[in-house]
Simulated assay, not measured.
Amino acid sequence: MPKVKTEKKSGRKEVSSKEVQGLRFNTSLGQHILKNPKIVESMVEKAALRSTDTVLEIGPGTGNMTVKLLERSKRVVACEVDPRMVAELQKRVLGTHLQPKLHIMVGDVLKTELPFFDVCVANLPYQISSPFVFKLLLHRPMFRCALLMFQREFAERLIAKPGDKLYCRLSVNTQLLAKVDHVLKVGKNNFRPPPKVESSVVRIEPKNPAPPINFREWDGLVRIGFLRKNQTMSALFKHTSVVTVLEKNYRTHASLHNIVIPENFSLKDKTQAILVESKFDQKRARTMDMDDFIALLHAFNKEGIHFA
């Protein structure tokens, strides 16, 4: 569910909520309910649910999608932060054959340990998009796929390729861990109340098995690469902040492996030599693909340079 910034007036935040059918939606929590049944049906269809599936739903709201998920799966675990929405959801299935199949988790999904699930379908609060994606992708045991609603630009970043204007650290990290496809554009008028941004639905399918890469190390390298994505790798690895962190890591590595560090040792010179030898010194992150980052990470690790 998209987050819409609260409007300011006379230096004070106005209450960012709307009343619809007696229920006030708090847009500061990202409460924009998907009202178009065709969009709901399309998302459920593209999830390709099986009757044996456990589905994780984030931000079920009043249950428009939850009911469809319950009809096609074995169990739905719905995670909701707002007790009022929980009450609405419980009322919706009360006394029906769907009630035993619904389990509700009340709380912030970012602070909650995710249960086992096969498929995740969610109309997310957009302010938690990035942290939730990585919480999802690092979750074990691995799930089959996720159908997630995002702000349009965020969705485009997820699927961006090297050289694209929106290609960024998010693109590289997500595509390392999963196959990502844009499946549906959703206009703002499909929500109640309408947000100020356009939306998109993305299908995320984790790579199974996961690539044999230490994700903390990988993300450390990619983070440096996208500090200034138009700068060369050579320029980026001369930044004082980068050199300081990597030198601390290197000295720790040397200590653990009984490597003697010469008195005239220069971490900056060492990283530059590695970049030149691996032919990445003049490369820029905005044009580097996953294979490039993997090759560069291996080149650094081989020489005892670590990023975590």
Rank of each mutant, 00 (worst) to 15 (best):
F134Y: 05
V245N: 01
V245T: 11
E277A: 15
L124I: 14
E153F: 10
L114E: 05
L69C: 01
P195D: 07
P83I: 10
M1Q: 07
V106C: 06
L98Y: 06
N264T: 14
L136Y: 05
L147F: 01
K302V: 04
P2S: 15
V15S: 08
M290E: 12
A122H: 03
C145D: 06
E71P: 05
Q99V: 08
S28E: 08
E41L: 07
L184G: 00
L158N: 05
H306R: 14
L110D: 03
I33C: 01
S17F: 11
D269G: 00
Q175L: 08
R286S: 11
K270A: 08
V106N: 03
F280M: 11
L124T: 13
N64K: 10
L94S: 13
R228G: 03
V44A: 11
E71H: 01
M149K: 05
D118A: 09
N26Y: 07
M1C: 07
K188D: 03
K101E: 01
N123M: 10
P211Q: 11
V119E: 00
L296K: 07
L98Q: 04
V133Q: 04
S255A: 15
K207A: 01
Q231F: 13
A273R: 13
M142V: 15
V86Y: 02
G163E: 08
S17C: 04
L136N: 00
M105F: 12
G187F: 08
T52N: 03
V106A: 10
K13D: 14
E45S: 14
E45F: 04
G63W: 04
E80A: 11
E247N: 14
E80V: 13
L23Y: 12
